[in-house]
Nucleic acid binder design. Structure first.
Lengths: 219, 219
DNA sequence: TCTAAGTTTAAGGTTAATTTAAGCATTAAA
DNA sequence: TTTAATGCTTAAATTAACCTTAAACTTAGA
């Protein structure tokens, strides 16, 4: 894992570099705001250890920069200043953690492990067929990137179709998905909703198979 | 945001509960390992503040249990023991942070904000959507640069919306975020708060999606 | 304690979503 | 090419969701 260490005190830096490498990180080191910024251009940096109080500027600026351009890059702040205000400020600006010098390297390593654990996690509940994309958690749908507003039943119907991409579903099956048991549907609701959906998407997006049902997607 | 406080000292617990609630958390409290475990069955707990050293067992067991069953649930440990070994152990077991007693409440709040950011994906303590800006740490909101005064519940509601910019949230979801369990909301509180918020911001800032919920921001 | 601000409740009005129903269009088989 | 079956379209009727208001209640601060 690639780590950027920003620290101006050469003695401290040297020691840290060595022990971080022993911990298995690939360490890049910079001692000025300027060079730190350059390193940050590099997308391969996955973790930053940042000393505030550098010779040519304030480390806080680096933090701001990171949080503006690479929100998900974890940053652990390292500093001599230990007042609570400083801590609160660093954390509120988006730092993931904060250690006051002097600190025990073991504690830094532990905190880095926590931070790097976080790097890998993402889960999306999104369905996509052609240009139509749905986020079932956020209740949003878009067509060619443009958001489309769907009422509840239309949303549910489209969801049922997208979840069964390429599979034909009868009106009866779809009805069962949209309505509670025992809720009698005495009419052609599904047809009507399909009609409304079709107005919002390309002509042939929802295909009809006469006497069988409806499909979406490849076939 | 739902928080579980595990703390056996009743005096401390009471004070913390109150101030955490003022910080906008819905706080559930338990003072034993057993009841903590029960609370943790509940999926909606999003954040845990854990005192080690409980009467009927070790808090570390709770931590282990959490990390086994709900890896992503952030835990902030709170304890009288302050040695580095303890810290390292707590962190390596998956705690996200560690505070030694006595601590300044402001620092706990700052660290909790960091932990909850992780849950909500937001990166800093300031949330911004359009002309509306919120500083969750300072508890302030502004519209077009002008400060807007919001009562606590309205603030929490707006926060829940801003944290989920572009994501539609149902009334039920919002209710769950603003209220503690056992506190049944027998009425249309959310609707009323939304109404009040709308008076303070532009007409279409909070959008309604009938039958689905409310959103703020892009769509 | 008292007061003012915040919060919840409840009722009635408003509007959008959903269902219904009827007539029109298309398909496939005789 | 006719016919019967199935699906499409439209608009009106119905229903459910939401908004608004005001009053009752609660809480926090002086």
């Amino acid at each position: 894992m690639h780590l950027l260490l920003v620290e101006d005190d050469h003695l401290v830096a040297e020691g840290l570099c060595r022990s971080l490498r022993q911990q298995g990180y690939s360490v890049e080191h910079s001692s000025t705001v300027k060079s730190a910024m350059q390193w940050l251009q590099n997308d391969e940096i996955e973790l930053v250890v940042l000393d505030l109080g550098l010779p040519d500027g304030d480390g806080i600026d680096i933090l701001k920069h990171i949080k503006k351009h690479r929100k998900n890059l974890p940053v652990v702040i390292l500093t001599a200043r230990g007042s609570i205000d400083d801590k609160v400020m660093g954390l509120d600006l988006g730092a993931d953690d904060y250690l006051a010098k002097p600190f025990d390297p073991a504690e830094l390593f532990a905190r880095l492990r926590v931070a790097s654990r976080r790097v890998t996690q993402a889960q999306t509940s999104t369905l996509k067929v052609g240009d139509v994309e749905m986020d079932t958690a956020a209740f949003t749908v878009s067509f060619q990137g443009e958001p489309v507003n769907l009422p509840r039943k239309e949303f549910m119907l489209l969801k049922a179709l997208l979840e069964n991409q390429g599979r034909v579903q009868s009106k009866q099956q779809l009805e069962n998905k949209l309505y509670e048991w025992g809720e009698e549907v005495g009419s052609n609701t599904i047809e009507v909703h399909i009609h409304h959906l079709r107005k919002k998407f390309p002509k042939e997006f929802i295909k009809t198979l006469r006497g069988i049902g409806y499909v979406v997607g490849k076939r």
